[in-house]
Design a protein around this nucleic acid. Sequence first.
DNA 1: CTTGGATTTGATAGTAATTATCCCGATTAT
DNA 2: ATAATCGGGATAATTACTATCAAATCCAAG
Lengths: 134, 134
Amino acid sequence: MEKKIKMTPQRAAIMEYLDGNMSHPSADEIYTEVHKMYPMMSFATVYNTLDALKKQNMVWELSVDGDRRRYDPRTEPHDHLVCVDCRSIKDIGHNGHKCPSGDELKGYMILREHVEYFGLCPKCQRKRGMGGDG
Amino acid sequence: MEKKIKMTPQRAAIMEYLDGNMSHPSADEIYTEVHKMYPMMSFATVYNTLDALKKQNMVWELSVDGDRRRYDPRTEPHDHLVCVDCRSIKDIGHNGHKCPSGDELKGYMILREHVEYFGLCPKCQRKRGMGGDG
DNA sequence: CTTGGATTTGATAGTAATTATCCCGATTAT
DNA sequence: ATAATCGGGATAATTACTATCAAATCCAAG
């Protein structure tokens, strides 16, 4: 682990918001929510803090959503179920899967693996009519 | 399959550039390269065309790189090996892995799955000194 | 408690990727 | 041929994110 980061009210507020949060919020959502309780919070601080937390491996930055980065306070290996309609992200366990043949990874040093399942959540299936097409 | 898209010189040029391309280029790279041969090509057309190709499932849009979207003309199931330093992306076969327990996927309709392996390519391992740190 | 240095904050400007708009030209249907 | 539709090019607008920097805050030493 790198050197510890200094705890500040702003950082505490962000960590408190993220703790146990399963919604995989974007920086914008984090700002909006935390700002309600701590109006002195600035956007830059959100990005700064997320950056610090990333370096500490206290938060994961997900690129699952092409539109914006999403943040996940769970940092044990796990995978994600992404709804292609509403962009909701659900954690699922990492079921350890067959690694590709050694040849394919030749020379690479693997640090982390992540499975993304793209699909439709129950709600969005209904919204689409599912069978009626939209 | 949706309705067929109209073929135009611009679209043909982009498809020609993408065909067999393993570099997973960004829209910017596609524009730059195609523009060399077809100077009348505009940026908007690149995005329009990629959009059309996506809808036809003739190209995949990858969100592996948080900074920009990357495009992949291979649309059979396969996974990716991503270098966290140089951001290069290498195709690897999809080795079909243990699906999560039915419970976790409850109610979801899975359309596609994708494994991303984050690591260091041989070149970047050397650049880092790998043991010397940089 | 005060000083001093380092770090963090917050406002904002800047950048880069992507999307929207608008109008023209090409193509298609009638 | 005419009207409607669609694609293309230029560019403005939007959005997410990064950089900058003065002022506030914290921590250690005295």
